[in-house]
Design a protein around this nucleic acid. Structure first.
Lengths: 224, 224
DNA sequence: CTTTTTTATTACAATTTTGTAATATAAGAA
DNA sequence: TTCTTATATTACAAAATTGTAATAAAAAAG
């Protein structure tokens, strides 16, 4: 069950929305204004915040800014005025989305789900072929079996997977792996690390399908 | 300079938009339809795609789906019909945002920038106190100096930082670190790893300000 | 206060990682 | 083809990591 904090001073609208969203499977907590909203936010754990931009006791933008200081929960603005300035300011303050009243309930649900999907992808995964990095656990698997990478091997793989399809020059790779820490290693060291990585992630290390050599330039990771 | 691919079959609108967005500092590539759009997308490197939902030679949703197969570039739908079904389907197909015609140019720019900001945060950072994990490089720094963590220490730190403020039980930590790989290590091993991690990340390991003990329950990382 | 329980610290051997150098292979250039 | 250059592979010591067991310290319970 996803908890949503609704900050809205139009009581009728709030009730209406609460009813609808509850029916859609969300759990709604309603705050009537800025003070109320921030207090409730501090107490509970919310997956998403719906925020009216104009509140009786303050500005929704302020609320958003304060919320974003404490957390990176997605915030969606509801606003009566289609004034584009508000949109711009809303995004500057860290808003994740924006929907003008009167809004269509189903569109609101779509936007909420979209925000949750993006944010809630707790399990951040980077895939390439049959190899997957579970970022938040720092874990690498191949065909769902854990493979053990050393610290440097992991860093190397991370660079490739977060730049999938992009050529990384030998210089850049060496820089990122060693120069940052003030070390200077021989030029051939990279070759060895590429080999070690391939031995662990490739089905057939001699014919790599993931970690490709681009002769004279560098290497890149490709997905098929 | 950010490159934007605009897929729009309304030539007049496209010219109009191109002009405006160019003035805003973007570089625009214009495709007149689905085939054209996919071909151009394959050739170039784009930071964002603006996609008309109804194209003469196909559906924008299809284009979006195909684009999202190859890349995770942000896609914003432009659509004439304010039909909410389209919105929903757009999100299901992986769209990042949606704007109905006629749209206010400044709002469009705000939405583009918003999409770019979210997506382009190439440098994914996890901070806690003076310690920062640069996720995409698998690099950890303390006061901007690299600190060298072993593979297991990194995984442990990653678990704490991606669950900042949340208590992690000893059982859960042990499970994530060792059980996954089918290993069974003694119960005291965790104590040792916590110590090793503290020795590396804490200013005063004896009085940890980041990695707190919650006696009888586990540990948690706190910011401040 | 004493006892029990939990966590912290230390030291130690087995194992792994790390960087190098030497050699082999592959791809282009002449 | 032969020559040159770039990358791959192998083997090897120095250094770091890993898990354990023993001991110390701290917190809670009796």
């Amino acid at each position: 069950m996803r908890n949503i904090l609704l900050v809205e001073d139009d009581i009728a609208l709030a009730k209406n929305l609460s009813g609808f969203l509850t029916g859609e499977g969300f759990s709604i907590t309603h705050a009537r204004g800025m003070t109320d909203g921030l207090e409730l936010f501090g107490k509970g754990r919310f997956d998403c915040v719906l925020l009216d931009i104009s509140l009786e006791d303050g500005n929704g933008l302020t609320v958003c800014a304060k919320i974003k200081e404490q957390s990176d929960v997605p915030v969606i603005f509801l606003t009566a005025s289609a004034d584009e300035t508000c949109t711009v300011m809303g995004f500057e303050v860290g808003a994740d989305d924006y929907i003008g009243k009167p809004f269509r309930p189903r569109e609101l649900v779509a936007r909420i789900k979209n925000a949750l999907r993006k944010h809630g992808s707790q399990q951040q995964l980077l895939k390439c072929g049959n190899v997957v990095i579970d970022i938040s656990r720092g874990l690498v698997t191949k065909d769902n079996n854990e493979i053990f990478l050393s610290a440097l091997e992991y860093r190397l793989l991370m660079m490739f997977f977060s730049n999938k399809g992009i050529l990384l020059s030998r210089d850049r790779l060496m820089d990122e792996l060693w120069t940052f820490s003030g070390e200077f290693v021989g030029d051939s060291t990279l070759n060895v690390y590429i080999k070690r990585l391939r031995d662990k992630i490739e089905d057939d290390p001699a014919n790599p399908r993931i970690l490709k050599t681009v002769r004279g330039l560098g290497y890149k990771a490709v997905d098929e």
